[in-house]
Design a protein around this nucleic acid. Sequence first.
DNA 1: AAAGCAAACTAACATATGTTAGTTTGTTAT
DNA 2: ATAACAAACTAACATATGTTAGTTTGCTTT
Lengths: 189, 189
Amino acid sequence: MKLETRKDELIKTAAILFKEKGYSAVTMRDIATAMGIKAASLYNHISSKQEILNEIIISLAEEFTKGLELIVNSDKSNLDKLSQIITLHVTITTNNTSGMASLNNDWMHLEDQLEYYLELRNNYEKTFLNIINQGVKSSEIKKVNPEIIMFSMLSTLRSLYLWIPNKEDSSENDIANQLSTILIQGINK
Amino acid sequence: MKLETRKDELIKTAAILFKEKGYSAVTMRDIATAMGIKAASLYNHISSKQEILNEIIISLAEEFTKGLELIVNSDKSNLDKLSQIITLHVTITTNNTSGMASLNNDWMHLEDQLEYYLELRNNYEKTFLNIINQGVKSSEIKKVNPEIIMFSMLSTLRSLYLWIPNKEDSSENDIANQLSTILIQGINK
DNA sequence: AAAGCAAACTAACATATGTTAGTTTGTTAT
DNA sequence: ATAACAAACTAACATATGTTAGTTTGCTTT
């Protein structure tokens, strides 16, 4: 684990601001002020505002892709795989709440990397949907429209960044378990 | 039902653009171009960019508040009330998909009306949570952390604006019913 | 001591952006 | 015909914004 570079600090600071007001509403001067330096000095570490967004979003998207790869290639049941996906989201979100805000809300401001991002996202959703479809086929999962199931699960998982910061008392495992119960077993007693 | 004024058209156009890129990234010139006029002409109908956002968000927030009021004062079971909340979200979102994007993503750019908006939202969540708590007390609902239940349901309902536009084949009722099944009964067979 | 380097600075730029002022145009009501 | 009005226009402005150029500062290594 390398030491945190100045560039890393910059990106972290930017991500916090992006979470609060969105990429477009945050100026280079805002980021600089938050770091206690002048806007021009930022360019010693990054080449453009765009690059900051790229770094935040792409690294997260790749983390999700790699995580899902491991899950889908395991020999667990389909419901267990869904539980593991829930854990994946909880873990990544816990470690980078601010970045997740950009991933969810500012991906459309990617430029050069937009196409690549969309490819990663489409593949992720395709793989996710596949697990659900197989679960329906093997009668693990109810016969409800699989796309609605995925949409519902993903909506909750993608919103975790809003909610996890308020739950510092609960452990990662605790949150993942409770979510699995709700999302898979439902709330009806 | 009054005829649609030019101001209404303006707000509708703006909402569509706000959904695509977010409030901050959309310029008055963007909105004007989309309407086939010049930016300065917009000011014949509104007094500022801010006002557009206010109108979009506050009217929706009030619609939710009124809708929930009716539901909470009915004599249905708590699970039925939750189903009705799902229907409320599906209905409002179907009628104003673009506006829902601003409500979800650009509320922090409200200025004068921010405080009022937050008051409406807090009350909404308090009332929602109350229904869940009573459902747990009356043993209709599993003993899982009620806040996680609300968070999970609200995340899905708040994301509907992203997904409903792709489902023009399904009826409102159909979507609401399937969502009720998933969110309340779970997906486990 | 000298050289190298990371990281800050000042000053300036071209462009983008929200908004105002005053004017023109075309339709509707008197 | 005339007055009134909604809704568009042109021109301009002050300010905000991303970025570049060139310079200074203070470690660290030789």
